[in-house]
């Protein structure tokens, strides 16, 4: 059996099946929905950071663009949720295209510039001068299309598509080419890999994923403030979850979200007064003692982690 098919059969199918059944078993649907959202976003981070080495510290900008693209389509064009999702994704893609010049920057510069871009979009969206378009700081209320169960199913479909994409990247020539660029861009270029094109495609794929996720998030929660969908916490969560599991793998981000998000919620319900402290310490411990993620523990024991 080819590896691609094996991965799809043994990772994707059980994951989606489990998340599809979960609402019937466990009542806290929002928690499950957030789990899907973060799994998708962590995979998006995985595509940019794991496969190209660029850390987009403003990743939430695409998520927010998707959420607002969706909301504006519903509010002004009275679009159906699916058409609105497409417009949300388009908004994120356009933002991604507009930001491609940032790739000229290296390391920390890129991370900071992408953060600044996300914050700039937030400042524009939440400005009262644009109240008649975005409803400014007063937030969005999408009561007309409210349908959490359908939104949950769509979010699951987006997750499935994203994981499938990562499975393909992990097994196809293009994914290998990207990793080669990450390790040494100049040598990769000399080996005939189109460096610029590779990075831009990965970047736009990640933007598309975040845009779709933001759109479906807006649909699901339906009442939100600009700060909610542009919260820096979304980026940091997605990055930390991806790193915790291990980037440039299929399984890493999935494990990372399942375990860490589980722990967060357990603390959040039992001893929330120490939530921030434990959360901070966990992140520090992760960087200092497990910088290559959980999968590196398995790899050291000779297990091949997909």
């Amino acid at each position: 059996m080819p590896r691609l098919l094996r991965h799809a059969l043994f990772i994707l199918v059980p994951l989606i099946a489990a998340l599809a059944i979960a609402p019937a078993v466990y009542g806290n649907h929002l928690l499950l929905f957030n789990l899907i959202v973060f799994m998708t976003l962590a995979q998006g981070i995985n595509i940019v950071y794991g496969f190209t080495g660029y850390l987009p510290f403003g990743y939430v900008g695409f998520f927010g663009a998707g959420a607002y693209g969706f909301s504006l389509a519903v509010m002004h064009l009275h679009a159906s949720p699916f058409a609105a999702l497409a417009l949300g994704a388009l908004a994120a893609l356009l933002l991604g295209l507009g930001l491609t010049p940032l790739f000229r920057l290296s390391g920390a510069y890129f991370a900071i510039a992408s953060l600044a871009a996300a914050l700039a979009v937030l400042q524009i969206v939440s400005n009262p001068a644009l109240e008649h378009i975005t409803n400014g700081p007063y937030g969005v209320s999408l009561s007309g299309v409210f349908d959490p169960s359908l939104a949950y199913a769509v979010a699951l479909a987006i997750l499935a598509g994203t994981v499938l994409l990562v499975i393909w990247l992990r097994n196809a020539r293009f994914g290998l080419a990207l990793q080669a660029i990450r390790e040494d861009a100049i040598s990769a270029g000399m080996a005939g890999i189109n460096v610029v094109r590779g990075r831009v495609i990965a970047w736009l794929l990640a933007a598309l994923i975040a845009g779709l996720t933001g759109g479906v998030y807006a649909w699901y929660i339906s009442v939100f403030y600009p700060e909610t969908v542009f919260s820096g916490e979304v980026t940091v969560f997605a990055i930390v979850f991806a790193l915790f599991g291990g980037t440039a793998t299929i399984l890493g981000p999935i494990l990372g979200v399942a375990i860490l998000y589980g722990i967060y919620n357990a603390i959040g319900i039992s001893t929330p007064q120490y939530f921030q402290l434990v959360y901070g310490l966990l992140i520090m411990g992760l960087v200092l003692f497990l910088p290559n993620g959980l999968v590196s523990l398995l790899r050291r024991r000779g297990v091949d982690v997909p």
Binding site: L55, A111, V236, L243, Q276, G280, I283, M284
Partner: peptide
């Protein structure tokens, strides 16, 4: 980025 973000949460 990540390490000091965690540290800022702790502080």
């Amino acid at each position: 980025f990540i390490l000091f973000f965690g540290f800022s949460q702790v502080i």
